[in-house]
Design a protein around this nucleic acid. Sequence first.
DNA 1: CGAACAAGTCAATGGCGTTGACAAAAGTGT
DNA 2: ACACTTTTGTCAACGCCATTGACTTGTTCG
Lengths: 247, 247
Amino acid sequence: MAGTGTGTGVRGARRRNTAGGRSGLTPERIVEGCIALLDEHGPDALTFRRIGGHLGVDPTALYRHFRDKDELVLAVADRLHGRVLDDFEPSDHWRATLQDMLTRNRLVYLAHPEAAVLSVARTTRRAAEMAGVEIILGALAEAGFPPDEAVKYYRVLVDFVLSWCGLEAAYLTLSQEARSGDENAWSREYAGAPADRYPHIAAAAPFLPTVTEEGNFALALELLLDSVELRAQRYAATIGEQRATAE
Amino acid sequence: MAGTGTGTGVRGARRRNTAGGRSGLTPERIVEGCIALLDEHGPDALTFRRIGGHLGVDPTALYRHFRDKDELVLAVADRLHGRVLDDFEPSDHWRATLQDMLTRNRLVYLAHPEAAVLSVARTTRRAAEMAGVEIILGALAEAGFPPDEAVKYYRVLVDFVLSWCGLEAAYLTLSQEARSGDENAWSREYAGAPADRYPHIAAAAPFLPTVTEEGNFALALELLLDSVELRAQRYAATIGEQRATAE
DNA sequence: CGAACAAGTCAATGGCGTTGACAAAAGTGT
DNA sequence: ACACTTTTGTCAACGCCATTGACTTGTTCG
């Protein structure tokens, strides 16, 4: 229950409900500072020393508001998670709703990879998360799935987007050298693969760099939703059949 | 390039092809020690000091075999990749080949969650990785895709299985408290969701705990391969059409 | 007003990756 | 066998990190 950090386990016991101490430092201001720092200087900049410097405050002052760095990162993640649904409007077709929502989810997470990496495997159980689950389950119900079927596809879609974002975010948090090395692997080393031992790689090598991250995600999501839609249609057909034979 | 660590950039210039120095320290022994350490004490245990302690060697001795920690992690990752292919036999149908290989990939990674977390995001560009890529591209070629199409589905399938394993592995490496807390979220807090605000969650709640990790992965993979197969058939049909009209 | 306590500061701890200087062992050429 | 070069393990140190305990200062409430 990371919350805003106001609660148990914070240095100096419980906090009064005032608007900041003598430096005007609040969990909200800290989280905002962290996001600014992440956006400006990258994931490696998220250290207590640099956050403190950015806010004009002693680094250890942050411990008055967050128990440790993990709680701080989760608070940042919470703030971002809310943004996914901030101005989200369900579409009139269930498939468009799912596609829009999952795509937005990815964009928000990838805007802040450091927070994403640490939070994809966690369940926050806060209001924003529940609202998102409700929307997805609603879309699947609209597709025609009964609850016991819907939960299966719900888990597939959620785990898919979370894990995919986790992978992309982890990649973004790599150091610059490691990342450029990995990127060169595709265009250089795979292109130089011996055609006798790796014929298919040799044939595919020219096209490997043409795949973009956005296109890759879009295709994966499209493949999944295609299958879900197909099964929804089949499910509806068998239900209709059962109804027809029952009458 | 990075290879086993024997190569450029390693402290002390190039190395002779002897079987270890005066302590019998080799890149292979180091990697094995790392995996043992990861399995036993988790991902945070992978520090030069602890590796050195585990191998009975000065921590900085590792720099004679690996330029930096990144290169070491890559070597560990490739060892895992290699285990996926150790006794793998391609099936006679391309879909079975893909399904078997990706399923094996998951099993190997989840057997060493700590190592998996560190390696899923990396492209190792070593032999084992290339062999796996070749198999997947070969299966897609067998499905009827030309290289420029095959690379798209290759990237989808690989990124899917890597990211999925990363998420599951990250979950397995969470502390016991965090994990049980997250598990309770599904059965307790979601079950107690107010039915007026979250009607679909309320309806689905009883079925949420019935989803297993294995079944979840199997379903996701099945959905993806269904779509890939469908597109392969459609692609073959349009090619046949073009041939028919060309004659 | 004064006691209680929150909130910021300071100094210090131990761990991390990494580096440079050094010593000992192992190979190499004569 | 000898001097040589190169490898490879060791040692001490640097700067960074998160985190802690003891302090000071400001705020707030009885």
